[in-house]
Structure formats: structure tokens, C-alpha cells
Amino acid sequence: MVQEPVREARTVMSESDIQRVLTRIAHEILEANRGVEDLILLGIPRRGVPLANRLAQKLAEIEPEYVVQERTGQLDITLYRDDLARAESRIPATTMIPPAGVDNTVVVLVDDVLYSGRTIRAALDALADIGRPRTVRLAVLVDRGHRQLPLRADYVGKNLPTASTERVMVQLAEIDGADADYTSDQVQIVDVMD
């Protein structure tokens, strides 16, 4: 059998692309919500957290009444996964909910890549155990398709048609900055070698 040549990693979003996309999503959130009233951003660890924080900064720049510390948090889904029995157990990440809680608010979940949809299903379960938001929305940097559940994102940075043999890699300074191969924020597509 002839092995297909492995292509080099392709950069599909640069640092400035990510910046622009987050600015657009911030405006879209404000437009749909008609302002920042009752708005809360929850990032999903790991890379959803810095994305949520960056979005929150942008919201605060546009609408100063949005107080970042009181309206931004993170929601860990490790203990709600449906594939726990298939992998070695991992240490859960921290969940931090804004002090006023999520009851009757508009929660925007933020993640880096939307793929099967299973992470978001777990996040909805986790959120339901914490409170009862009025509305839950979803913002993602990249939607790469291949959904296994009937879910969609409300705010999408980039729709990225991919093959399931490819992997989408997101690098963000807050998480990957200390890595030796980190140069700048970017989104890349990498072929998975079996």
C-alpha cells in the first residue's frame, strides 16, 4: 500500500485573523443581545477560557458597563463527558462562575473548535447543575463540521471544512506561549498520522 505523503501544517488563521474575528463576534453578540444586559461569558477549558477573556475585553471596550470580572467565568466539563470510560481519567480543570450566578442570565459558552458537539452537550449538562440561564448561546473560533449531535453554534469565527483524518490545532499565547514551538497565535490544520 502506498502511504499518502504527509503534508505540512497549513495555517488557516493568523494572529490578526483571530483578532478581527473576535471583534466581529463581540459586535454580533451585542447586536443579538441588544447590549450587554444579563450577559455572561463562560469559556470551556482549556482554550475556550482565554478566548472568553479576550471577547470580554472587547465587549468592555465597546460597552463600558460590561464589567469583565463580574461577567466572565469558566466551565469545566471533564466530569460530564460521555467518553470517560474510554480514556485514562484526567484531573478536572477549575470551574469559576461569576458571583451573581447564572440564573436568568444570557450565557454565551465559548470554545475554540466545534467538532462532534459532545463537549457542548457536556457543557449544557454542567451548566444545568449550576443554575438556570434564560438563554444559552454558543460562540466558537472554528467550526470544522462532522457533528454527531444536533447542535450548532450561534457565533462562528470561521467555517473550516475538514476531513476527519485532519486535526485542527489552535495556539493561543495564554496557553501555548511557553511552548518552544510557539511563535504567534494561529489556527493550523495538521494531517493525523496513524
Partner: peptide, 20 residues
Amino acid sequence: LDTAQEMATVSDRSIKKLPT
């Protein structure tokens, strides 16, 4: 110990239960 740290936050919630 680090996992227990996260488990402890469940005791502060109104629904003190995880489906894990």
C-alpha cells in the same frame, strides 16, 4: 489532591451531584 480541590466546589453548589 488537585482533583479533590475541584470536587470540593461541588459541595458549595445547590445541586451537589455529578453524573460522572
